[in-house]
Simulated assay, not measured.
Amino acid sequence: MSRKEQILKQLAARKKAFTILGSVVVLCAVIFGLYWGFYGSRYISTDNAYTATEIAQVTPEIDGTIKAVNVVDTNSVKEGEILVEIDPRDMQVAYDKAKANYDRAKIDFDRRKALSTSGSVSADELTRSENDLAQASANFREATLNLERTTIRSPIDGVVAKRQVQLGQRVRAGTPMMVIVPLLKLHVDANFKESELEKIHIGQKVRLTSDLYGSRVVYQGVVDGFSGGTGAAFATIPAQNATGNWIKVVQRVPVRIQLQPEELAANPLSVGVSMKVRVDTRSD
């Protein structure tokens, strides 16, 4: 083969290689364009997301000694179910005294009111009796309420967590006893980059999966609201950027995503579970 033929063959091979390379580049560009047009520009995703909920704190409203504790951590409870009972004897005595005083004051007032029409009882005396009845009535209502407060019921449906109260313990009003976690009212706090928030709006549909179940369980959520500040703004020790060595860091803003109770009932989640979130920005 002559020198000229070798050169022509090499040029043909190079041309073929460049053609193939160009075709690959064009194909990649087309694939990327299709991806961006149908997916990348439509969906915004993050795995910096966790389940959360508004828990109910259970505390006594009176001082007393614990007579019974009917639940332990992980127990499911219904609204109104009895959680804790405080020894009612002291409150029962106070109730009986208040009721006796009220009954006596009521009888005394009724008698004076009947006599006042004939002039046998002065207006001042009737007024004092009426005031005594009002005071006795208030004391009786307070004693009744305190007696009812010896029975502590669940304020909501949920699961018992952080139980701290023990049988025989002397507690004061406001002492934390436990919390009730409403697992069917969980939401997700998804932390998106501040540069991504422009496309996210309330009402957009969200696809979620959890690390607990993996991709086999998909939750359908809705964007419910935005936090009033970034995570760094609400940190215990907020960042101090007014320094000479300041470096810009992209901040993340929590976005609240509402979950469906029926999906949570079918596949329960716990508070703090990691989630993967994908927002459909064209669904509003």
Rank of each mutant, 00 (worst) to 15 (best):
E5S: 13
L8N: 12
L11S: 02
A12P: 01
K15N: 07
K16R: 03
I20L: 02
G22R: 00
V24L: 02
L27V: 14
L27G: 06
L27I: 13
F38M: 14
F38P: 01
G40W: 09
T46F: 00
Y50I: 13
A52V: 01
A52P: 01
A56V: 01
V58F: 03
I62E: 05
I66M: 03
I66G: 03
K67A: 11
A68P: 08
V71T: 05
V71R: 11
V72S: 08
V72H: 06
T74A: 15
S76M: 11
S76N: 12
K78N: 10
A94Y: 06
A94P: 01
A94W: 04
Y102Q: 08
Y102A: 10
D108G: 01
D108H: 01
R112M: 11
V121F: 05
S122M: 05
A123C: 07
A123P: 06
D124F: 01
D124W: 01
R128Y: 13
S129M: 09
E130D: 08
D132E: 11
S137D: 14
A138W: 06
T144M: 15
T150F: 02
T151G: 08
I152E: 02
I152W: 05
S154R: 04
S154W: 07
D157F: 01
K162W: 07
V165F: 02
V165P: 00
Q166L: 10
V171C: 04
R172M: 15
R172V: 15
A173G: 15
G174E: 13
M178K: 04
V181F: 01
V181W: 02
L184D: 15
L186S: 03
H187M: 14
V188C: 09
V188M: 11
D189A: 14
A190I: 04
E194D: 13
E194H: 11
D224Q: 12
G225K: 10
G229L: 08
T230S: 11
A232E: 14
I237H: 15
A239L: 12
T243K: 06
Q251F: 00
V253W: 06
L259G: 00
P261V: 15
A265T: 12
A265W: 07
A266S: 13
N267C: 12
L269S: 03
V271I: 14
D280G: 10
R282G: 04
